[in-house]
């Protein structure tokens, strides 16, 4: 999964040591990795904490729309696969929280920021999963978009983030392929199943294109993130690559991409596609997505219901440590 950068960031690196700053810029420009104990500008640290934690939140919140279908998976095979996929998303969240913690934030701070609404997560998870075909569409399109976004991040300049991304990318391909397989089965099934697959594509196509974030001419933070090599390619570049890769896959399924303006452009060697409804995107960013409230309610409930377990485990560990010290 993936989260776009959704908040404004402070650009100015106020009162940084110019010599250290120059050395840092040179290292990043030379594609050197920055490691946790290295000196880094405060704005770089803050940008990373925000981006990595939002990425982690997206993985964790991303478990909800799919978790919704575990008990209703159509076969034991599908159920085992979906369980494994949702568990992977949890794992991805944990890799990323750990990477963010190396920058000096704590897990509790990040969780609090999510639950209080200060931290964002990917807009895509504020759409509901209405039918089983949505599980196919999420794997194929949403994880497909995530792969496009995440592959360049394996070379992001912050070492722990890059290493987490390498691990995540290795696992993500299974997610996309299991989703495509679900779509393939439905598309080759009964007329009703094929309609279900088409309906899921219709609902998930545009939100998937929005996952890459605002267009380049309206993405004020991209330039700094590119310069710091936190980000390696622009939103529009990756979005174009996703469209070019995905349209032939839809054709192979015998499904129609819901875009009347979609057509191959020989000159640019890619597809031209219709205008994205950015009003919808910004509304979802503001928390007006169809199931945004449900998602946060589910997260907060899980956190609060688990509080006694966290406290009991600590009390148990403390008691054992005390006994051992007494012996």
């Amino acid at each position: 999964m993936y989260t776009t950068e959704l908040e404004k960031q402070r650009m100015a690196s106020a009162q940084e040591d110019p010599e250290k700053l120059a050395e840092f810029d040179a290292r990043v420009a030379a594609d050197d990795f920055i490691e946790p104990k290295d000196w880094m500008p405060e704005a770089y640290r803050k940008t990373l904490i925000r981006q990595i934690s939002q990425h982690a939140h997206s993985e964790i919140v991303g478990m909800l729309p799919e978790g919704n279908w575990i008990t209703r998976a159509p076969s034991l095979r599908r159920k085992a696969v979906l369980l494994a996929k949702v568990q992977d998303e949890g794992g991805h969240g944990l890799y990323l929280y750990c990477a963010a913690e190396t920058l000096g934030t704590s897990r509790d701070e990040m969780v609090e920021a999510l639950h209080s609404g200060r931290a964002k997560y990917s807009t895509i998870f504020n759409y509901p999963t209405l039918t089983w075909a949505d599980i196919g569409a999420i794997g194929w399109l949403v994880d497909g978009a995530a792969i496009m976004n995440q592959v360049p991040l394996q070379r992001t300049s912050y070492g722990p983030y890059a290493r987490a991304m390498v691990r995540i990318c290795k696992e993500e391909s299974f997610h996309q392929r299991q989703g495509f397989e679900i779509m393939m089965t439905l598309a080759n099934g009964t007329a009703e199943q094929k309609r279900m697959a088409q309906d899921a594509l219709n609902r998930w196509w545009w939100p998937s294109l929005m996952m890459f974030g605002p267009p380049d001419d309206n993405s004020p933070n991209s330039a700094q993130s590119m310069r710091w090599r936190i980000k390696r390619e622009t939103n529009d570049e990756i979005r174009q690559r996703f469209v070019d890769a995905t349209v032939p896959q839809a054709e192979a399924l015998g499904l129609t991409v819901p875009d009347a303006d979609l057509k191959w452009n020989e000159a640019k060697g890619g597809y031209d596609f219709g205008a994205i409804d950015w009003e919808e995107f910004y509304a979802v960013v503001r928390g007006e997505g169809p199931v945004a409230k449900e998602r946060m309610k589910a997260r907060t409930k899980a956190w609060e219901d688990g509080a006694w377990v966290r406290e009991a485990a600590l009390a148990h560990a403390a008691k054992r440590a005390q006994r051992m010290a007494a012996e």
Partner: peptide, 23 residues
């Protein structure tokens, strides 16, 4: 491989197994 949060050593091993050795 990375890190995990856990109350004690045994729980850390179990969390590490779930987080870093699923494949």
């Amino acid at each position: 491989a990375g890190s995990v949060h856990a109350a004690d050593a045994r729980m850390a091993l179990e969390a590490a197994r779930d987080t870093y050795t699923r494949r």
